[in-house]
Simulated scan of single mutants.
Amino acid sequence: MIIPNSKFLISRRKQLELTQRDVAWRVSELGLKLNDNHYSRIERGLDDYVNIKLETAFGIARALEADITECFEVKFENDVKEFSLSPEQKRKLKAGSKQTVKAGLGQYLKEYRNSKGIPARVVADAIEVHPSYIFQVEKGNASFEVMQKVAKHYGFSLEDINPSVSAPSK
């Protein structure tokens, strides 16, 4: 809900020496529909005018040459403290899942390659894949077999990185 800060709206309008009609006219000049009667009701914070359109709120703030946060307060009727995970997020974050392990291995391989200054093309040529595939490996979007080949090229195995990976599996 967008709730008017009545005290601020009134004091700012008076400070600028504007009438309610002047404010409504300025808002309408911005291409928004607002007459002085509606503005009067918004300014007074009447119950039927507490949830106004966002564009109208911006128009009023602009007409009063003020920041929208000074003129209005936003309140969520159904405020949620914490969102629950979607089924897709739960699947991806499942502890010990194959994709999570692959992502961790890929990240390690990427960090190792970058720390040694090895170009992706050199690794790709060594294990006979396209250079762009090395980046997929480093994102965890490759088979364990290919990841093992990259690790072997670097002089270690996937087991050295993560003991839970006992052998390349599909």
Rank of each mutant, 00 (worst) to 15 (best):
R113Y: 06
L93G: 05
L109C: 02
A120G: 03
G104N: 10
L93Q: 08
A120T: 12
G117V: 10
V101Q: 09
Q89D: 15
V122D: 13
A103Q: 08
K116N: 06
S97W: 02
K94T: 10
G106P: 05
Q99A: 10
Y108T: 03
Q107I: 09
E88F: 15
V123Y: 04
S97G: 13
K116I: 11
Y108Q: 01
G106S: 07
I118C: 01
G104F: 10
G104D: 09
K110L: 12
K98L: 11
I118Q: 00
S97E: 03
Q89L: 15
Y112V: 08
R91N: 13
Q99D: 05
R91S: 14
G96R: 01
L109I: 06
T100K: 08
A95R: 09
S115C: 05
S115W: 07
A95N: 06
Q89K: 14
E88N: 13
R113N: 05
T100W: 01
Y108M: 03
K90G: 14
E111I: 13
A103G: 01
Y112H: 01
P119K: 12
K90A: 13
L93R: 06
Q89W: 13
L93I: 06
G106Q: 09
K90L: 15
G104M: 12
S97P: 00
N114P: 07
K98C: 10
K102F: 00
K90R: 15
L105C: 04
Q89T: 15
R113S: 05
R113I: 05
V122I: 12
Y108N: 04
K92N: 13
Y112R: 04
K98Y: 08
L93V: 09
N114T: 14
L109W: 05
K92E: 14
G104H: 06
V101Y: 01
E88M: 15
P119E: 06
G106M: 11
L109H: 03
Q107V: 09
K110N: 14
P119N: 06
Y112A: 05
R91G: 12
A124G: 12
L105Q: 03
I118P: 00
Q107F: 10
L109P: 02
S97H: 08
T100G: 04
N114D: 10
Y108L: 02
L105D: 04
V123L: 00
A103P: 07
K98I: 15
N114H: 09
A103E: 11
